[in-house]
Design a protein around this nucleic acid. Sequence first.
RNA 1: GCCGCAUUCGUCUAGAGGCCCAGGACACCGCCCUCUCAAGGCGGAGACCACCGGUUCGAAUCCGGUAUGCGGUACCA
Length: 512
Amino acid sequence: MTDALPTSGPDIRVRIAPSPTGPLHIGTARTALFNFLFARRMGGTFILRLEDTDVARSTLAYERDILDGLHWLGLTWDEGPGVAGAEGRGAHGPYRQMERLPRYAAEAERLLSADQAYPCYCSPEELDAERRRLEAAKLPPRYSGRCARLSATERAGLVAEGRAAALRFRVGEGVVGFEDLVRGWVEIDVANLGGDFVIVRGDGTPLYHFTVVVDDAAMQISHVIRGEDHLSNTPKHILLFRALGYAEPRFAHLPLILNPDRTKMSKRKTQTAISDYIAEGFIREGLVNFLALLGWSTGTEEEVLALDALCARFALEAVHKGGAVFDRERLEWLNGQWIRKLSADELVDRLRPFLAAEVAAARIERMPTDVELLALIPLVQERLPVLGAIGDLVGFLFVDRITVEPALLVPKRWDAATTLAGLSAARPIAAGGDGDVDGDGSLEFEAASLEAGLRALAEQRGWKAGDLFMAIRVATTGRTATPPLFETLVTLGRTRTLERLDGAIALLEQAH
RNA sequence: GCCGCAUUCGUCUAGAGGCCCAGGACACCGCCCUCUCAAGGCGGAGACCACCGGUUCGAAUCCGGUAUGCGGUACCA
């Protein structure tokens, strides 16, 4: 069976099967990425399937978030719904489980009539009590099998009581083993599965362990690549594949992504929604690169890799077995690497929504033009770990008035009087006076001449140029850390530079 | 409890018996560059390769056990 599976080509079929019960999770994105990389590497088919049988928690908004997030990451799928709410494309649909109900019903019926499954009339309360009893006795929880051998008349009696019947799968006995592509041979005694398990609820809706097998079989999935948290469940799935008469796919269980305390990554301890990372200004190249290297490496020292390079190098055999802690510092570093690789035009495009958000939040007063943005790129490109940092970096350029903390105005080695003298002396240079070597007032407001003029001033007065520059920096931007000063002043423009110098001078005089 | 999986610098990892008294990257520290902040360059600190036994001339690498951690154990997915 397994040796009949393809080793390359379009018959390599893998899938990502998220539940629209929450926003796209980092872990789901990583699993999707590994499936995608494997499919692309092998020339296979990557499928998206929505597992929406938890009707109470599934929403269209989450579905949209998940599809948008995967699209944003660049993980395009060959089969499945293209957009939220739409029908999927591909020959193995439908790709939404709630649209596959007849299929599950038919498969359940097959198991029932083959007596590989049976109706169970135990109520949730009874099962709960049973489980608690076992736990209290320090025994592993397991279904007693009470309904496993009911006679027809017993069943009729329970039905007459008005009890709803769930459907349980007979696990039988023996040991189930499989060759996991990342972990090697794994085997589990069926006796440890907790007894016959429910595959269809009392209300007739099918359960995960059942739907996943029916769908993977129907969609001819060749490789099931998923998180390690499913490893212990795999024997259940294998049993179901066999009972249903389908070939088993191959399995590969990925190491978990961990919180800093090494527990399974959770939104309580780590930011997990991809949309939150997008909102902060992580870019797809950085996030994809980072995620690919969580639990896998090329085996070389290269680590800044684009999606196509990752595809070219990916190998399931090289995936690690141990869990990997999500290290945000490393993500930011990689993100910065990729921001620096962007072309100026591209960076302008990506920055625009973040500036718009600054406007919307009233942190800046107007949206910069594309020309202004393009001019800013050389000043900001290597200073952005995330795109969302743009507001802090250059927001002072797009507000009419800045607020200046008087204490910041005075450089460390200076006092208020020196600062006042420094700014007052700098003003005419910025105004084009003293720095105007031709004396005709035509001096351009330009970085090199501003720097030359102000350096000359500092030297003449015996000041450290850095101190003078710092005073001007704070006076004109309100901050101690900014892009290079003279380019910044030029961007600010002569008029506003002078206004802000005057404002700072007034502030210092007032403090006197 | 039971079952399963895992275990190399704080973190991500290289390493498939001698090339390893363990290499790279992030973070950290220092120096250089420098108007600040970054970026970049150079250097440093940081791992008794979880532990104990065994196999071998030789083990991070093979075997066994122990410990610890994590995951699973639902009419959730």
